[in-house]
Design a binder for these strands. Structure first.
Lengths: 147, 147
DNA sequence: GATAAAGTTTACGTAAACGTAAAGGTGTTT
DNA sequence: AAACACCTTTACGTTTACGTAAACTTTATC
């Protein structure tokens, strides 16, 4: 085998930098369904992937309910009646719109961060110019130009 | 003037589909600082932009605290000591990393949605093929091919 | 076989982000 | 001036997503 194929709760907690409480909470919310050996939870590779997806959802601003909805989509994309499948396609379409909005949001935020950073660097340069004049009036001065 | 240049609280609430309670909450959290005429809040164009930014932050999964931090960056990008400005640049860099991660997250999620949608459509086609056979055995059948 | 380390359940606590309701001021329109 | 719409503050309630602590069992190790 390439890697381990089962994990303890603290294995995953360490790997993904969450607490065991968090992982147990996700199980209580039916987002994870680890096997048991006696009382002890045993996580499979699939469980590990699930956890990774939950945390990705969090980074994207999804609630656990939304992530659960996505899991249902993935899990049931082969089952269900025609009506169910059509509903799923609609849900997928809505999620796609949401993602498209996020992309726009990200673009705009990047532009604003660019401009904030530019202003910030200008202000810094200004400060250093003043400091430079002060230094040259008391001692020596270096080149004014910067690469 | 091109558009209105002041707004009531319910103007903004309607435009952005939030409650007035939400807007008042943002003011209490110092994310908005509307003017007052007597007791009544009067929102400027700047306030309106702020609100838009807050809601964009929400869509991106930012907490109000994170959004406030960004506001501070924008507002203070021209002020502060050299040390402060350098700290701001670091904060900006961290935000950029966060955004980069989000882009990756979005890409992967899109791939998964593609595959979920494909499976979904396959399952649908399968169902319709069966329905087609059933129909043809009792009555007539239409073309099997789909555009 | 003691004891420490990691696992478990149960249960109360908490921060964030509002919802909801009460009680009242302002203003305008019929 | 009565009624209605919209504004305000104050304050307690609610949901989500865990944190924290207590009490207990199972597993590893010396």
């Amino acid at each position: 085998m390439t890697t381990k194929d089962t994990y303890t709760i603290s294995d995953l907690a360490k790997e993904f930098d969450v607490t065991t409480r968090t992982i147990r909470f996700y199980e209580a919310e039916d987002l994870l369904k680890p096997a048991r050996r006696g009382q002890t939870r045993i996580f499979s590779k699939g469980d590990r992937v699930r956890l990774k997806l939950i945390l990705r959802g969090k980074r994207m601003g999804f609630s656990l309910a939304e992530t659960r909805e996505l899991f249902d989509l993935y899990d049931n994309s082969l089952k269900g009646s025609e009506k169910q499948l059509l509903l799923m396609l609609e849900t997928l379409a809505r999620k796609r719109e949401q993602i498209e909005q996020q992309k726009k949001d990200i673009e705009m935020m990047e532009q604003e961060m660019d401009s904030a950073e530019a202003r910030c660097r200008d202000a810094l340069a200004e400060l250093q110019k003043k400091a430079g004049r002060k230094a040259s009036s008391s001692k020596e001065s270096k080149a004014t130009e910067a690469g």
